[in-house]
Amino acid sequence: MKITIIAVGKIKEKYLTAGIQEFVKRLTPYCKLDIVELAEERMPDNPSAAEKTQALTREGERILKAVKPSSYLLVLDVAGQAISSEQLAAKFDSLALSGQSDLTFVIGGAFGLSAEVLAAAKERLSFSKMTFTHQMIRLLLVEQVYRAFKISRGEPYHW
């Protein structure tokens, strides 16, 4: 399976970078994982609604250019569907069985995702009703992808 994570913004905290690198390393036997970092749009300190929309539109255009047309697009969105780790594992299995072996996850920046990116997604997933930094979500996502592969293979880690 090929998994791409497209993320807006850079990881600045060393502890998050170390955690992400650890799970990327652990995922090597299970999938080919690529992380694509896109720059956040610059905005004034107190942007207007129009300035936020314009920035999200520009970020969205770059995100959609980075998504392969044949890839199954899942976006992380606070208003998306909350699923369990077991359901994520089952989703991977189901997609693989149907011949869909190229998945792309998108993590937006501080202001979320454009309407165009949300509309292009096959699925919108939420990790929680709580708000997390987009940097922290990247670590949580790679850990959950790893956990999903372990669950699918019945290997120890999940329990």
Rank of each mutant, 00 (worst) to 15 (best):
Q81T: 14
Q144P: 12
L56D: 09
A148G: 03
M130K: 10
R124C: 01
T17I: 10
G80V: 06
A119C: 12
K25E: 11
S84E: 02
I63C: 05
K52M: 05
T104F: 06
V145A: 05
V36P: 09
A55T: 04
V106P: 06
S84H: 06
T4P: 15
Q144K: 12
L33R: 05
Q144E: 14
L76Y: 10
L95H: 09
F23A: 07
L16Y: 12
D45Y: 02
E61M: 12
F127Y: 04
A89C: 03
A50R: 14
S85V: 10
K52S: 01
L33A: 11
G112T: 02
V106N: 05
T53M: 00
S85A: 13
S126F: 01
T131N: 13
P47V: 03
G112K: 03
I6W: 01
D102Q: 12
L33I: 06
I63L: 02
A148Q: 03
N46T: 06
A121S: 08
E40M: 15
P69D: 09
I11M: 13
T17A: 15
T17Y: 06
L88C: 12
K12P: 02
F127A: 02
V75K: 03
V142N: 05
A148M: 00
D102W: 01
I137V: 14
L97D: 13
S101A: 13
T53W: 01
K32A: 15
H158D: 15
V106D: 13
I151A: 13
T53Q: 04
A119M: 01
H134N: 00
Q144R: 10
V106S: 03
F149T: 02
Q87D: 08
F127I: 15
L74G: 07
K10P: 02
L141G: 07
P156K: 07
V67R: 14
K25F: 11
K32Q: 15
V106G: 09
E59C: 11
I151F: 02
R42D: 13
S71T: 09
K129L: 07
S98P: 00
T28E: 08
Q100K: 12
K129W: 07
Q100W: 00
L56E: 02
E123V: 06
P29M: 15
F92H: 11
E13W: 06
A7T: 11
L16K: 11
A115R: 12
L125G: 07
S70I: 05
V24Q: 13
L139Q: 10
F111R: 08
D45R: 03
L64P: 14
R62V: 08
E40I: 12
T133M: 11
P47H: 01
P156Q: 10
K25C: 14
A7L: 02
H158I: 12
K52N: 00
A119N: 07
V145H: 11
I5P: 00
L16G: 00
E40R: 01
S48P: 08
M1I: 02
F149R: 13
K12Y: 09
Q100H: 00
I3D: 15
S94R: 14
L118C: 10
E86Q: 15
V142D: 10
R42M: 08
V8N: 12
G60Y: 06
L141E: 08
P44D: 06
L56I: 03
L38V: 10
A89I: 09
A115S: 13
I5S: 11
Q54C: 01
A39P: 09
K122G: 14
R138Q: 04
Q87P: 00
T17R: 10
A55M: 02
A79H: 08
